[in-house]
Design a protein around this nucleic acid. Structure first.
Lengths: 237, 237
DNA sequence: ATAATAAAAAATCTCGAAATTTTAGTTGAC
DNA sequence: GTCAACTAAAATTTCGAGATTTTTTATTAT
C-alpha cells in the first residue's frame, strides 16, 4: 500500500501541525486503519501522530465537523460508527444535494467548466483502464482521488456555497463505505458508462436528465453495498 | 437586554470549559456582539471568556464546523461574513433541506410527534401574542428559542440524521440574519398565520402541501431582508 | 520618493505538565 | 448475593509559557 506516501504528501502540504494531524487521522479513518466506533484516546494518538494533546484535540474537533469523529463531553472522542442504515440515509441525502448542485452547475457553467469536466473525466477514465482485477488495490487511492475530482468538476459551476460544503462532507463520508465495496467483488457494474452518460447530459445542458442520471449513479453504490452485506451475512453463519 | 442571562444559562449547562466558551461565543456572534468579519484574536478572547488559549482555540474550531467562524492557517480566526448574496444562498438551501425533512417527518410521524408539534406551536403563539411594537426587543431571545423549537418539532419525526444536522447548521446561520430583520420594521408579515397553515397541513398528513408552505415561509424571510437592504441603501445616500 | 531589506512587535500555534473527571476495583454493610 | 461507599488508576480536559510565523515599523540604498 502507498498510504504512507499519500499521508506524507498531506503532511508536507500542511501549514500547521493541526492540519497535518487532521489530514493523517482523516486518511486513517477513511482507510479503516482507525476502525468505525474505535475510541480515539488523546494520550495514545498524540504519540502516534507526534503532536501535543491540545493540537491533537483541535485536529479531532475538526474531524467532528466532518462527522468522521464523534465526541462526548468528558468521555473523549471516537471514530464515527457506520451501518447500512446510515449509508442508506447518506445516499438519500447525497442524491438530494448532489443532484441539485449538478443542476445549478449546468445552468451556470461556462466554457472553462466544460473544459475542466472533460479533462477530469479523461483522467478518471485512464485510471479505470489501468485497473485490472489483480492490481485493483494498487490503484484504489488514485482512483479515489480522480473520482472525487470528477464529481467535483461536475458541480464545479454550482454557485451555492452551502451545497458545495454539504456535498464535500457527504462525499467524504461515502468514501469510507465505497472503499469497503470497491475492493470486494460485489455486483458487476459499469461505472465508466455511468460517468460518461452524466458528462454527455451535462455538456448538452440537459439539467433534468443529468440530475436523474446522477441520482441513479449514487443510488447504485447503495445497491452494491446492500448486496454485499447480504452476501456477508450469508457467509457468517 | 437579557443576553447575559441567556449566556449564563448556556455556560452553566456546559459540561466543559470548551462547551461553555463555545456557547458564549456562539451567542455573541448570533447577537452581533462579535460582528461579521471581525477578527477573533486568541489573546484577546481568552481573557474575555476566561479560558486558556488551547481551550478557546478548540471552541473556535467547533464554531468553524458550524460555519459561524472561518479560519485561515497561521492567520487566525474570524467571525464569518454575511451578505445578501450569502443569505439568498442560505435561504435556497434551507428550502431544499427543510422542506424535504418536513415531508419525511410527516410520513414517519407518530402521535407523540403530533402532540409535540401542537405544544410547540402553542408555546410559540403565546410569545407572539405577548410581543407588541414597544416590548419587541425584550422578547427577541425567547421568540428565537420558541421559533427554533417549533421548526424543530415540525421535522421532529424525520429519520434522516443528515438532513437534521444540515438543518441545524442552516437554521443557526439564518438566526443571524433574522435578528437583523426582526427588530426593524420591514414589510408587514403575518408569521403566525404562516405557521398555523403549516401545522394544519402537517397534521392532515399532506406532505406536498406542507412542503410548499414551508418553502414559501422560508422564502418570505429573504424577501423581508431584501426589502430592508433596499430601504437602507436608499437612506444611506 | 520608492523599493528592498532588516529588525522589532504582535499574533498564531504548539507543547506537556497539572487539574479535573470518569472508570474500575475493593471493601464492607445489609 | 446485592448494593453502596470508598479508593486507586486511567483518561479527559485545561492552562499558560515558549516556539514559530506573520505583520508592522524602521532603516538603507537606489
Amino acid at each position: 500500500m502507498n498510504n504512507s506516501l499519500l499521508n506524507l504528501t498531506e503532511a508536507k502540504n500542511a501549514r500547521s501541525m493541526v492540519e497535518a494531524a487532521y489530514g493523517l487521522i482523516r486518511a486513517d479513518i477513511l482507510n479503516g486503519v482507525l476502525a468505525p466506533g474505535e475510541r480515539l484516546r488523546v494520550e495514545v494518538l498524540k504519540d502516534r501522530y507526534e503532536v501535543g494533546a491540545s493540537t491533537l484535540r483541535e485536529a479531532l474537533t475538526r474531524l467532528v465537523g466532518d462527522a468522521l469523529v464523534t465526541s462526548e463531553e468528558q468521555r473523549g472522542f471516537r471514530v464515527a460508527g457506520i451501518s447500512l442504515q446510515d449509508f442508506a440515509d447518506l445516499t438519500r441525502t447525497r442524491k438530494l444535494i448532489e443532484a441539485e448542485a449538478l443542476a445549478q452547475s449546468i445552468i451556470h457553467g461556462d466554457e472553462e467548466w466544460e473544459a475542466n469536466l472533460v479533462a477530469a473525466f479523461h483522467r478518471l477514465s485512464k485510471v479505470e483502464q489501468a485497473r485490472t482485477p489483480e492490481n485493483i488495490a494498487l490503484y484504489t487511492d488514485e482512483f479515489e482521488v480522480r473520482n472525487r475530482e470528477f464529481h467535483r468538476a461536475l458541480i464545479g459551476a454550482c454557485p451555492s456555497r452551502w451545497l458545495m460544503q454539504f456535498q464535500g462532507i457527504l462525499f467524504g463520508q461515502s468514501e469510507r463505505y465505497r472503499r469497503i465495496s470497491l475492493n470486494s467483488r460485489g455486483m458487476p457494474r459499469d461505472v465508466h458508462s455511468e460517468h460518461k452518460a452524466i458528462v454527455e447530459a451535462a455538456l448538452a445542458r440537459d439539467a433534468d436528465r443529468a440530475r436523474k442520471l446522477e441520482e441513479e449513479h449514487i443510488e447504485k453504490t447503495l445497491e452494491v453495498l446492500s448486496h454485499l452485506v447480504v452476501t456477508l451475512a450469508e457467509v457468517q453463519d
